[in-house]
Amino acid sequence: MAYDELLADRIRGILTDQKGLREQKMFGGLAFLVRGKMVACVGTGDRALLVRVDGAREPEFLQFDGALHAVMGRGRSMGAGWITVDAAALENEAALQFWVSAALEHNANTAGK
């Protein structure tokens, strides 16, 4: 199953001004990297987006509609700050902008680490 091309285009539009933006196939989808670190990955199916956010703020982020802690396979946690977001929760631009901005904030705070 291919990743959501429309969602990928929407993310490209948000990230267009980011220096060092790179795309790479990863996790069965298309990842967007800034400064060599993943910001977001467009997946397949209902779990449409994977983002890397500040792990200390994960409980806050998990309160948003469609957000779940990311796991690899059966119950293998990806660690604090890895969140998947349902496709239905990303239908409006404000919601997608929120998640990409949260991931960019974390990316900027970990630059050089």
Rank of each mutant, 00 (worst) to 15 (best):
M38G: 04
A108N: 10
K37D: 06
L7K: 08
G20K: 07
D9A: 15
E5T: 15
A94R: 12
S77R: 02
V85W: 10
R10Q: 12
V85H: 05
R12G: 06
A80W: 07
L33W: 02
R57G: 09
M78A: 15
V39G: 09
E60K: 11
A40I: 10
L62H: 11
A48K: 04
D86W: 00
V42D: 06
D65T: 09
L50M: 09
L49Q: 02
L33Y: 06
Y3F: 15
E93W: 00
G43Y: 02
V34H: 11
A108I: 03
A31Q: 02
D65V: 08
C41T: 12
H69R: 15
R52D: 10
F98C: 12
V51S: 02
W82T: 09
L33R: 15
G13N: 11
I83R: 05
R74V: 13
E91A: 13
Q18C: 15
L6A: 14
V42L: 03
G29F: 02
A56L: 13
E60H: 13
N107V: 07
L62M: 11
K113I: 09
A70M: 12
I83K: 05
G45Q: 10
F32W: 06
I11M: 04
D46N: 12
D54R: 11
A8G: 05
A88M: 03
M72P: 00
V85S: 03
G43D: 04
E93L: 10
W99D: 07
P59F: 01
G29E: 07
Q97Y: 07
R12I: 02
K19N: 14
L33M: 12
E60M: 12
Q63F: 01
D46Y: 00
M72T: 02
F32A: 10
E105Q: 11
L7E: 04
A94G: 05
Q97W: 04
D54A: 14
R22D: 12
G73F: 11
A56Y: 01
L96Q: 08
N107R: 09
A88W: 05
D86A: 15
A48N: 07
G28F: 05
M26R: 03
R12M: 06
F61A: 12
E105F: 01
T44W: 00
G13M: 01
N92R: 15
R76Y: 02
V42Y: 05
A70P: 06
P59G: 07
N107T: 09
G45K: 10
D46V: 11
G112N: 10
N92P: 00
I83E: 06
I14L: 15
K25N: 08
E105L: 13
R35G: 14
T44V: 13
E105R: 14
A31T: 08
V51G: 00
A102R: 10
I83P: 06
R76W: 00
L33S: 04
G81C: 03
A67R: 07
K113R: 13
K19F: 07
E93S: 13
A31V: 01
G66L: 07
A2S: 12
A94F: 00
L15T: 05
F98V: 03
G45T: 07
R76L: 11
L104T: 12
A70V: 01
E105D: 15
G20E: 11
A108C: 01
Q18G: 00
